[in-house]
Amino acid sequence: MDKDLELLHQKIDFLTEQMRETQRRQREMEELWKDLTPVLTDLFNTAAEELDEISPYFGHEDLIYLVKKMLRNIRSLTALFEQVEGAQDLLKDLVPLSKDIFDEVLGRLDALESRGYFRFMKATFSVVDDIVARYSEEDIRMLGESMVAMIDIVREVAQPDRVASLQKAVATLRDIQVDIPARRSTFGLMRQMLDPDVRRVLSIGLGIVKQVAEKLPVRSAMQNGD
C-alpha cells in the first residue's frame, strides 16, 4: 500500500512538473510573440506600401503567371543553377592559377625593370616629346618618306651578290700598295695609259659615271653641266 502511494505521488509530481514546464514555454512564446508583433506589423505595413506602388503594374494574375512560368522551366532553371555551381568550382580552380600568373607577371616586370627597359622607354618618350615640339606634321611626313627611301637603298645594297662585291672591293683596296712618285711627266702618264689593266679600270669607272649620269634628273644634270 505504501509503495502504491509513493508511486502515485511520483506520478503527481511528474505531471505537476510537466504542467509547470508547459506553462513556462507558453509564457516564453507569449513574450516572443509580443516582441515580434511590432516587427511583423511594420514589415507587413512596409510590404503593403511597396506593393501598393506597383499594384498598377503587377497583379495577382501576374504572380500566378510567373509561378507557372517558373514551374514550366524548372529544368532550365536547374541547369542554370548547375552551370553557376560549375562556374564557382572553376573560379575556385582558377584562383590559385591566377595567383601564379600574377606572380610570374610581377617577376617579368621586375626583370625588365632591372635590365633598364622602363628607363629606356621613359627616355624614348622624352625624345618623342622633343620631336613633337620641334617639328611639324609635314616635317615628320617628309622624314618618313626619306627614311623609306634610305631603307630601299640599304635593301638594294644588302643584296648578297652586291655585299660580296663590296667585300671584294674593300679587300682589294686594303691590299693595294701604290707607290706615288713625287713627280711624273706627261709622257709617263701616257705610257701608263697603254697598260691594259689601267685602260680596263678607266673603262669601268667611266661606265659607272655614265650610268649614274643617265639616272640623274635632267635639271640636276644641267646644273652640274653649268
Rank of each mutant, 00 (worst) to 15 (best):
Q26I: 06
S203N: 13
G207A: 15
F102R: 13
S203V: 01
A158Q: 05
Q211C: 13
T186D: 02
A47K: 00
D195P: 03
E49N: 09
T16L: 12
S76G: 14
Q23V: 03
G59C: 11
A169T: 04
F187N: 02
E50L: 07
V178W: 03
E17W: 15
T16M: 06
S165Q: 07
M70T: 05
L91I: 07
P56L: 00
L173S: 14
K210E: 14
S98Y: 10
V105W: 00
Q26P: 01
A213R: 06
G225E: 15
V67E: 12
Q18E: 09
Y135W: 02
Q177I: 10
M121Q: 13
H60R: 03
I131G: 03
I153G: 08
R162V: 11
P217W: 04
L112I: 01
L112F: 04
I208P: 01
E21P: 06
I54H: 06
E137P: 02
R108F: 10
V163L: 07
L80E: 06
K210D: 15
V163W: 11
R141P: 03
I140M: 04
L80M: 12
S98T: 00
E145N: 04
N73K: 10
D100W: 04
D110F: 01
V39S: 04
R27D: 11
S76Y: 11
V157K: 07
V148L: 03
A169I: 04
I153S: 12
D195V: 15
S55M: 08
D226N: 11
G225F: 14
M70G: 02
M190F: 04
A123C: 01
T41Q: 05
K34F: 02
L202I: 03
S146P: 00
R25D: 12
E156K: 08
D100R: 09
K99E: 15
E61S: 11
R200Q: 13
L40W: 00
I153Y: 12
R141T: 09
T41H: 14
R27E: 14
I176V: 12
L143F: 06
D179S: 08
I12L: 15
K11I: 05
I204D: 14
P38Q: 02
A87R: 15
R174E: 07
Q88V: 04
A221F: 08
V212L: 12
G59M: 01
T172D: 10
E138K: 04
L189K: 02
L94K: 09
L91C: 15
